[in-house]
Amino acid sequence: MEHIIDIVLMAFMAVAAIVMIRLRSLFAVVMLSGIFSLLSASLFVVLDAVDVAFTEAAVGAGISTVLMLSTLALTFRDERPPRRRDPVPLVVVLVTGAALVYGTLDMPHFGDPDAPIHHHVAPRYIVDSPVEVGPPNMVTSVLASYRGYDTLGETTVIFTAGIGVMVLLAGSWRRRRRPASGRTPGGTETRS
């Protein structure tokens, strides 16, 4: 049963991705990308990664769709039709895809409990984390305790990205608006 749901959701996602390539209305593409994220969140639930599904549903389907819509509000709603068709990207993509598919032929099958990935680090987390760390949710104990450094780094990346966005958007706004508005609270009027 899980396999059927998995196959159907995967097929939906493939269709959504291909339609997103073909559509030229960016507004429709952004809405489809929200649907795409929601489909992937449901797929994560089927694949037993509930924490990831939770995050994807909140972030991918919620925040990033809203951010893209606000970008479209500041830019354009449509993509310009291409001037000429270039076959090179399609060839590159097909060759890369074929190489990757060839690479999967040696991979352990989907859901195989004997796959190497389940025998190296994971058993330690599964067996020892309730004793060593305590919380029943292993993902939390790995995230915050075993891999605390990792998460500290990720939090710093989020912080840096946030500062970057604020500098890019808020900075330009002040530079344009302030001299024009005539009200210069920062003490700039003495010079201008």
Binding site: I63, V66, L67, S70, T71, L74, I158, F159, A161, G162, V165, M166, L168, L169, A170, S172, W173
Partner: peptide, 12 residues
Amino acid sequence: VMVSIFLAFVGH
């Protein structure tokens, strides 16, 4: 960060 980013986009 999420609130700041969103308000930076909206208030831009």
